[in-house]
């Protein structure tokens, strides 16, 4: 079965991104496919590579990047939500005249249409938020 996941909260403050990550792993372990994981609202903060948690804590961002690399996942960050919250890739840096980027590996910034497409293409879409 084809799953997609919407993550609506940032890392650490809410449990949602932890739950979404564990759920995604379980989906793959069960042999299902993940069409896309979409990050919206403060969920876009899951995609900043500048995060530095204490060494004895989980690194939520690296964990997503690794999961994406190992399973060839499509991690999409909503552009409008990202612009509001300062999540920037090369294209956004140039377009908006910023002086840095912070998008973590394995993520890409794109439009909300990607969420709707995930809803259309997937058998199930599960929302994790607060």
């Amino acid at each position: 079965m084809k799953f997609s996941i919407l993550v609506s909260e940032g890392p650490y403050t809410h449990q949602s991104s932890d739950t979404a990550y564990q759920f995604a792993k379980a989906v793959l372990a069960k042999g299902h496919e993940i069409f896309r994981i979409f990050f919206y609202h403060d969920g876009v903060n899951n995609a900043t590579r500048l995060t530095t948690p204490p060494q004895d804590d989980r690194n939520i961002i690296n964990r997503w990047s690794k999961l994406a690399e190992e399973n060839n996942l499509d991690l999409v960050v909503c552009v409008a939500a990202a612009q509001r919250r300062g999540i920037v890739d090369d294209g956004e840096m140039k377009r908006n005249g910023k002086d840095a980027t912070n998008l973590a590996p394995g993520f890409r910034i794109s439009g909300l249409g990607q969420l709707i497409e995930a809803g259309i293409q997937s058998d199930r879409l599960v929302v994790f938020g607060d």
Binding site: Y40, H41, L112, G113, I116, G119
Partner: peptide, 19 residues
């Protein structure tokens, strides 16, 4: 909170996709 506003943005996009 911002949820309601950003929800509206999703509504408009979904409509643009003729859903």
């Amino acid at each position: 909170t911002i949820y309601a506003w950003e929800a509206l943005e999703v509504v408009l996009i979904a409509a643009a996709f003729e859903q």
